[in-house]
C-alpha cells in the first residue's frame, strides 16, 4: 500500500444471500469515506467481473456450493493479499449447508420434481452447460482455500465490517467491542 495508489478491495458473494453485502452498504455515508481510502476492484457493488491487479483485501460472502464458487474463491485467493470470510455462510456453510446430510440427487428431486409446490411436467432438472455443477456438499470457504480472518454474524453488523476494514487498511490492531461480535 505504498505511493499514492489506493489499496484495492474486492468482494464477492458465493453461495450466500447478498445479505452480507447489504450490511456492507449499511455503513451508509461512511461508504464515501471508504471510497476516499480504497478503490473498489471486482465486486457486485460496481459489477466489475475481474480483479485487474492484485487486491489488498478480499471479502468473501457465502460458502462453496458449486464449481463456479470454487473457481471464484480460488481466483480471489490468488489475487488478494488478505482474504476475509464474512458472515455465517462463508464461515460454516450456513443455511445452504443444511443439504449436506441429504444426497445431492434427493435434493434435486425434491426441488425440481417432488416438492409440494413444484409443477414440472417434463420432470427435467435444469441442465444447461451454463449452469455450474453442484458440489456433493456445501463447504465453508476455509475448507477450500486458506482464509486469513473470519467475521461472524448473519450478517455481521455494518459497524463490524467498517471497524474491521478500517483496522485492516490502516494496519492497526482490530478491537471489536463485544456488542459487535454476533453469532446469529
Amino acid at each position: 500500500m505504498s505511493g499514492n495508489e489506493k489499496p484495492k478491495i474486492a468482494t464477492t458473494s458465493l453461495c450466500g444471500c447478498f445479505g452480507c453485502h447489504m450490511s456492507l452498504l449499511d455503513i451508509d455515508l461512511r461508504i464515501l469515506d471508504l471510497a476516499e481510502i480504497v478503490e473498489f476492484s471486482r465486486s457486485p457493488i460496481n459489477d466489475l467481473k475481474t480483479i485487474e491487479d492484485r487486491a489488498a483485501v478480499g471479502l468473501i460472502e457465502g460458502g462453496c456450493a458449486n464449481e463456479e464458487n470454487v473457481e471464484v474463491l480460488r481466483e480471489f485467493r490468488r489475487q488478494c493479499d488478505v482474504l476475509v470470510s464474512v458472515g455465517d455462510c462463508a464461515i460454516s456453510g450456513g443455511i445452504p449447508a443444511l443439504r449436506n446430510t441429504i444426497p445431492l440427487s434427493e435434493c434435486l428431486d425434491e426441488a425440481y420434481r417432488n416438492g409440494p409446490s413444484t409443477v414440472n411436467e417434463s420432470g427435467d432438472i435444469p441442465n444447461d452447460p451454463e449452469i455450474p455443477l453442484l458440489l456433493n456438499k456445501v463447504y465453508p470457504a476455509h475448507e477450500v482455500v486458506k482464509i486469513d480472518y473470519h467475521l461472524p454474524g448473519c450478517p455481521p453488523p455494518a459497524d463490524t465490517l467498517w471497524t474491521a476494514l478500517v483496522a485492516l487498511l490502516s494496519g492497526k490492531p482490530l478491537d471489536l467491542p463485544y456488542k459487535l461480535l454476533k453469532y446469529d
Binding site: V70, N127, V145
Partner: peptide, 30 residues
C-alpha cells in the same frame, strides 16, 4: 503448504462427481 493458498484436502474433481452423474456432463472447471 500449497503455493497458491488452496486447501490440499479439497478435491474439486471428487466434489462434482455426483453432479456430473446427474447432469450427464463433465465439469468444465475440475
Amino acid at each position: 503448504s500449497d503455493p497458491d493458498g488452496f486447501c490440499r484436502s479439497f478435491d474439486l474433481k471428487a466434489e462434482v462427481s455426483q453432479a456430473e452423474g446427474i447432469a450427464g456432463r463433465k465439469s468444465e472447471h475440475a
